[in-house]
Structure formats: C-alpha cells, structure tokens
Amino acid sequence: MPAPPEDAADTAPVPAPIVARHWYTRWLLRALAVLALALGIAGVFIPGLPTTVFILMAGWAAMRSSPRMHAWLWRHPLFGPMLQNWQAGGLVSRRAKRSATVMMAVCAAILWLTPTPVWVRWLACGCMACVLLWLWRRPEPA
C-alpha cells in the first residue's frame, strides 16, 4: 500500500540559511525571532495585533540566526505556508486577507466607540485602509 501523501509544508525544501557572522548578531537576531514569534502567536488571539507580519519577521531573523528554528518555522503547519507563500513572490492567501480585514474592521469599530480624539480615529482608520489596500493588491497563491 502506498504511503499517504504528506502535507505540502512537510515536503517543501527549506531555503539555505544565511547565518550572521558574529555570535552577538546571531543572539540578537535569535531574540528578535523569538519575540516576533511570540507576538505573532499572540496576534492570533488579540484583535489588532498582526500575525503574518510578525511571523515573516520571525522567519527572517531565524534564517540569519538559527537554522534549526528556521527549519522548524518553515515546516510548521500554521506558519510554514505563510513563509513559503511570501518566499514564492510575496503571495498572501485570501484567508489571511479576509482575517486581516475583519480584525481591522473590529479595531476601527472599537476605536470609534471609545472616547478618543477624532484625529486619532481618522489617522488610525486611514493607516488601516492603506494597509488593507496594499494587502489586497498582493498576489494570491494558486
């Protein structure tokens, strides 16, 4: 009997890491990777905190500091597809676009319902609109 097909994230080749030369640079980048990963995980649960951006930062920092962490992120069932799509040409999935749109809409609604200065509301909503415009113009994976 043939083996069941593996997940695409498990079979995708991990790009060769470009490890920083100096030990202190590697440690700073590793700390950045761990912090960005923690913020990305928190972003799954906290409205307004982006997930994809922090995972991309974690992947970038891990690639330059820890080949083991980079390989783990690359093969992770949740984070791997984000990194692989971005590596394949800055692709962003429709699911990620929808999720970001919903979360930004929730944040905008909360912002307008709280007592904040009007200019803060307009500035924040304008920034979110610019990010959404950029995000929805990104190509999607096939």
Rank of each mutant, 00 (worst) to 15 (best):
M1Q: 06
M1W: 11
M1H: 07
A3G: 00
P4D: 15
D10H: 02
A12G: 04
A16K: 08
P17Y: 14
I18N: 07
V19Y: 00
R21N: 07
H22V: 02
H22Y: 04
W23S: 05
Y24H: 12
Y24T: 13
R26M: 10
A31T: 14
V34E: 14
L35Y: 12
A38C: 14
A42Y: 12
G43D: 13
F45W: 10
I46M: 10
L49P: 09
P50N: 02
T51S: 07
T51V: 05
M57L: 12
M57R: 10
M57Y: 07
M57A: 12
G59W: 04
R64H: 13
S66M: 11
M69H: 01
H76I: 12
P77F: 12
L78G: 13
L78F: 15
G80T: 04
M82W: 07
Q84D: 11
G90M: 02
L91F: 00
S93K: 10
R95L: 09
R95P: 11
A96G: 02
A96V: 03
K97S: 03
S99C: 09
M103G: 05
A105I: 03
V106R: 08
C107V: 09
A108H: 06
I110N: 00
L111M: 00
P115W: 05
W119D: 01
W119A: 03
L123I: 05
A124R: 10
C125G: 12
G126Y: 05
A129N: 09
L132V: 05
W134C: 00
L135I: 09
L135S: 06
L135D: 02
L135Y: 05
R137M: 13
R137V: 12
R138H: 10
R138T: 07
P139M: 06
E140S: 04
